[in-house]
């Protein structure tokens, strides 16, 4: 495993943007937990670095809405998992290079959110980068947002929408929802409005979700319990935030911490800054990644 990581890290150091969430799961083994009624597709816009507020990355989010459950996941991540599964099925030890799936738009929306309408809670499956750490699971209540109605209307994809606003964990959000789709759901953790949220905008323009597709589709909604199921680790949101903070503050240190004994090679540069092979990262070698999480608090 160490060798594989060594290889990936070279890549990671070369292009840090691609180092997102390379922690695939095998999707061959799963159980069906509900049947979707609608499938809503959003374009998610992200800003990794708050110092570069005009540099956005994009991913596609798929929201499957069933009778009692909804699931919102990243399309890129799903494709990546599929390729990983196919590759494992073929006997390879897994398809490791996420960058093949990340387009020019370059983003991956990490959290996979399952909302359980009946028990009024949601389970978030969160994967931290390639470091082969467990897949974290944590629960939150559904009524997280304190929505305020504000008078405004807008038509999105032919659906008349109303405006609502909320402050959520350090960011101010504007939502556009439609009563013509009477589902109390939306992208990521957003929910609780009397209609489906078709658009969310963050006030600083760092984050946004825009609906780009609506389908009446019955498809099984699944929960994976494959070989990595035992890797799932229950925790709290605070734990996950702490891990993400540590990872971004010094991801080499973080990988060393979670994979004891690993050898990390980094690109060597000569005086003119040209690439000159690789060398083992010295003890105490640090490398930070820009960090601009969607939840600031």
């Amino acid at each position: 495993m160490n060798k594989k990581l060594y290889f990936l890290l070279l890549l990671t150091l070369a292009i840090p943007r691609l180092a997102l969430a390379q922690n695939p799961i095998n999707i061959d083994e799963y159980k069906v937990i509900d049947q979707s009624r609608f499938i809503i597709t959003y374009e998610a816009m992200m800003t990794d670095d708050s110092l570069k507020p005009t540099k956005h990355n994009y991913d596609r989010l798929v929201l499957m809405v069933g009778d009692s459950i909804s699931r919102c996941y990243s399309n890129t991540m799903h494709r990546y998992d599929s390729a990983f599964t196919v590759s494992e099925r073929k006997g390879h030890d897994g398809y490791k290079n996420m960058s093949h799936f990340v387009g020019d738009s370059g983003g991956v929306w990490v959290p996979d959110v399952y909302k359980y309408y009946g028990s009024k809670r949601m389970t978030i499956m969160h994967r931290i980068d390639e470091a082969r750490v467990p897949i974290y699971l944590y629960d939150e209540p559904l009524d997280l947002m304190d929505w305020k109605m504000s008078f405004g209307t807008k038509e999105i994809l032919g659906y008349p929408c109303f405006k609502a606003e909320c402050d959520f964990r350090g960011r101010h959000w504007t939502a556009w929802f439609t009563m013509q789709i009477p589902v109390k759901d939306g992208p990521w953790k957003f929910c609780g409005l009397p209609g489906l949220i078709l658009e969310m905008e963050e006030s600083r323009g760092h984050y946004a979700f825009r609906c780009i597709g609506i389908e009446n589709q019955q498809k099984p909604m699944i929960w994976y319990d494959g070989p990595r199921f035992e890797d799932y680790q229950r925790c709290t949101r605070a734990d996950v935030m702490k891990q993400e903070e540590d990872y971004h503050a010094d991801f080499i240190g973080y990988i060393r911490m979670v994979n004891p004994g690993i050898k990390i090679h980094v690109a060597k540069r000569d005086a003119s800054g040209k690439y000159a092979g690789s060398e083992e990262a010295p003890e105490g070698y640090k490398k930070a990644l820009p960090y601009n999480p969607v939840e600031l608090e």
Binding site: R79, I212, I214
Partner: peptide, 18 residues
């Protein structure tokens, strides 16, 4: 029964892996 007015996603023309 609720039937939504569908909006097809402008699909990516090409996608793939290795």
């Amino acid at each position: 029964a609720l039937q939504l007015k569908e909006v097809s996603v402008k699909s990516e023309k090409i996608w793939g892996s290795n």
